[in-house]
């Protein structure tokens, strides 16, 4: 149960006040993971650091080469943003599949990554877009590929107090498709999710990145499958080979949402479908 809750409006203020706050502390953004755990009595911390109004985390901006997406921008905002539509189509396509529209008014990409769920939709779209995550600890910044922050189901590699400031996505024209297999629309966690970003000209694949969710311990980049498709023409034979490969590349489990074999099978089906949409 939080004994202390502290709100911050800037990173400078956060780094200044942080050392004086209880050691058992946790960042609180949209709360759509953290407070579910709190309400269920599964997780609790002595101190919540409310970062939802930190200015630096609530920006989307661009320079010549990159788009920066603040870790605290709400999913609903991202779904209306013209820079996201143009340069991060995977994320734009992902938003309507992400929870319900009221949850999207709260949920953030920072929380989606830090929570490290194998089924994180936003992480799947960011990884397919080859995004890097920008981390900050007492003003010391570092950036690394998004998936390198994931260590296993619900385990991330963030250092204590390290904050996800945002995501950097290279500006490269491409097409994207995001598909999610789910029993009942708007109820969150999918059986399988796939996001494909590709540069395809007249059926020739110049570049491609295939990323999956809910079929491995973390959101997962299907590198073997992508390498089969890259520099190939999308013939029926190649698509079949890729969909066979993706079924062997993933490592799904059986759980309340779906069975292992079905998930494996559907990875191939969804890949074929995604390639059809994108070609």
């Amino acid at each position: 149960m939080p004994e202390v809750i502290e709100k911050f409006y800037s990173l400078k203020e956060l780094w200044k006040k942080l050392p004086k706050l209880p050691v058992d502390r946790k960042y609180l953004a949209g709360g759509t993971d953290l407070i579910v755990g709190y309400n269920l009595g599964i997780s609790s911390n002595e101190c919540y650091l409310d970062i939802s109004d930190i200015r630096e985390l609530n920006l989307v901006r661009e320079n010549k080469k990159q788009v920066f997406i603040g870790a605290g921008v709400k999913l609903a905002e991202l779904g209306k943003n013209s820079l996201i539509k143009r340069w991060v189509p995977a994320l734009y396509d992902c938003v309507p599949h992400f929870a319900s529209s009221s949850l999207r008014n709260m949920a953030t990409l920072g929380g989606n990554l830090a929570n490290a769920s194998p089924s994180a939709d936003g992480v799947c779209a960011l990884a397919a877009s080859r995004a890097w995550v920008l981390l900050n600890l007492y003003g010391k910044r570092e950036s690394k590929p998004v998936l390198s922050v994931l260590k296993g189901p619900k385990k991330n590699a963030l250092k204590k107090d390290q904050i996800i400031e945002g995501f950097i996505v290279p500006k490269k024209r491409h097409k994207a498709v995001f598909l999610k297999l789910i029993s009942r629309a708007k109820f969150g966690i999918g059986k399988v999710g796939i996001c494909v970003c590709a540069d395809i000209e007249k059926k020739f694949v110049k570049d491609i990145n295939v990323v999956l969710s809910s079929v491995a311990p973390t959101v997962f980049e299907a590198k073997k499958t992508s390498s089969i498709l890259k520099y190939s023409y999308l013939t029926a034979k190649i698509v079949e080979k890729a969909s066979e490969t993706i079924r062997t590349e993933v490592s799904p489990i059986s759980d309340i949402r779906s069975a292992q074999d079905y998930r494996r099978e559907m990875c191939g089906v969804l890949l074929e479908r995604a390639l059809r949409y994108i070609a």
Binding site: K7, G31, V36, Y48, S102, N105, M106
Partner: peptide, 24 residues
């Protein structure tokens, strides 16, 4: 966050008040 019975408008946006701390 599953049922929507707790929705309120926060600065014009519908939010699930069960998943927000009051201080937010």
């Amino acid at each position: 966050g599953e049922c929507g019975a707790c929705l309120d408008l926060l600065d014009g946006r519908a939010v699930n008040s069960c998943l927000m701390m009051a201080a937010q």
